[in-house]
């Protein structure tokens, strides 16, 4: 698994549950408390050890932890760069959904060896969608559920998300868009804000 993804997980655990919690998880998984480097690659088993170690310690289902991770990725100010790169996908939430097919390709433009989930959006009518998610580690659709939830908020859209077929490798998220302009949402300008926090 790419270091950028591992580092995001580390960032999420340390920010949300404290550095002591992260240190305990890191030791349990067999890495130092400094954790992951963003630009290196790690064995998938290490990522899995961190995730399951954290879920065990918290007594929280792995799926819920991954969904929280997805929300964190979009809503944490320290990862503003990531939110911005996702918002480049489209001007409103529907355009954003339609851009998800290209997400892995877009990411590879910037970081050629980044292994994001392969996403495929199926449209069932104007306001119902199904997002298929295939990844080399299980649980990608849980992270995507969190990302979609947080980004709907970011765009000011009101959506209902349902996970279906969660056991299969290519699980899917069902998305129902109730109102694309439910709230103001957060602004997005193409220019990089001057005081943007680094990821």
């Amino acid at each position: 698994m790419h270091g950028l993804i591992n580092r995001s997980i580390q960032c999420f655990l340390a920010d949300t549950y404290g550095t002591d919690f992260w240190a305990a998880v890191a030791v349990g998984a067999g890495i130092g408390p400094q954790g992951f480097e963003t630009m290196l690659h790690y064995d998938d088993a290490l990522t899995e050890a961190v995730l399951s170690g954290a879920a065990d310690r918290l007594g929280k289902p792995r799926a819920a932890l991954l969904e929280d991770l997805g929300i964190f990725l979009v809503s944490n100010p320290r990862l503003e760069a990531l939110r911005r790169l996702l918002r480049f996908g489209g001007e409103d939430f529907i355009e954003f959904l339609q851009s998800l097919d290209d997400l892995a390709g877009r990411a590879r433009l910037a970081v050629p060896d980044l292994d994001l989930p392969d996403l495929e959006l199926q449209e069932h009518g104007a306001r119902r969608f199904r997002l298929l998610c295939r990844w080399h580690v299980p649980g990608g659709c849980h992270v995507m559920t969190g990302i979609l939830r947080a980004l709907a908020d970011d765009y000011g859209a009101l959506v209902v998300l349902n996970l279906c077929d969660a056991t299969a490798d290519d699980a899917a998220v069902e998305i129902e868009l109730l109102d694309s302009r439910f709230s103001e949402g957060r602004g997005f300008s193409l220019a990089i804000p001057v005081d943007q926090g680094a990821a």
Partner: peptide
């Protein structure tokens, strides 16, 4: 797309610099 790339590359460069 160019703006996206500029921004993504800047973020990646920053990570590389930190490393």
């Amino acid at each position: 797309e160019m703006l996206y790339l500029v921004e993504a590359k800047t973020a990646v460069m920053e990570e590389t610099r930190k490393l």
